[in-house]
């Protein structure tokens, strides 16, 4: 369900860009961070086979994130306003690299990159949420995208509990980062459920 929600979020995002011929309201910085997240995490495509499902999803996430970046940077460039997308990504990249160096399952390059990608994914939404807060409002379709994206990691949580009791395995890095990631959406979810799903416009209180 988490993976399908993640997949759905990307489909909704592409649908929003296509139908409105615009990437207004979407943070380029957040989208660029996702490209970095997928590239650093899915390097193991080249040597670690899990399943056709796993491989297909990895390829889709890399390809679609690069494609969204292309749409924003070239095809719909005039519709993107960098003056409101001002979050400093350096504040995220540095700490995530440090977290990757401290918390990893083996002190080697690919494992550090994997851990870095987990931490970076947890906070990659911040430029987008920062932008949302600056503008104070969003199109309904953009909020559906964010809701699906936020629900994705939240839906992994029951799976981790299941695997703890069922398979007796736990991945503390993924669990802690996943809880942080979900936590960052709580404010958004509150407004989404109390306004957008009640048919009102997404507007933040002044």
């Amino acid at each position: 369900a988490g993976d399908i929600s993640h997949l759905a979020s990307i489909v909704i995002l592409l649908h929003k860009i296509y139908t409105s011929h615009s990437c207004r309201g979407i943070s380029f910085k957040t989208q660029a961070l996702y490209v970095l997240v997928f590239l650093t995490r899915y390097l193991d495509l080249f040597w670690h086979w899990v399943s056709l499902y796993n491989t297909a999803m990895k390829v889709f996430f890399i390809a679609s994130s690069v494609y969204v970046l292309y749409l924003m940077k070239y095809k719909y460039r005039p519709t993107h306003d960098p003056s409101i997308d001002t979050f400093k990504v350096e504040y995220l990249l540095g700490p995530c690299l440090i977290l990757g160096l401290i918390f990893n399952y083996e002190f080697k390059f690919t494992e550090i990159l994997w851990s870095f990608s987990i931490w970076l994914e947890a906070v990659a939404i911040l430029p987008q949420l920062f932008m949302l807060q600056r503008t104070g409002e969003a199109e309904a379709i953009t909020t559906h995208y964010l809701a699906a994206l936020g629900a994705y990691r939240a839906l992994y949580i029951p799976n981790w509990i299941w695997r703890y009791f069922g398979d007796n395995v736990v991945d503390p890095i993924a669990v802690v980062a996943g809880l942080v990631q979900t936590g960052l959406y709580l404010d958004f979810f509150y407004v989404y459920f109390t306004k957008v799903l009640q048919g009102q416009k997404f507007e933040l209180p002044a």
Binding site: D3, H6, D44, H48, V50, N54, M57, K58, F61, Y105, E106, W114, Y156, R163, N168, V169, V170, D171, P172, A174
Partner: peptide, 10 residues
Amino acid sequence: EILRTEKDEL
């Protein structure tokens, strides 16, 4: 084995 180091999730 309690620590999952096998990368089988996305």
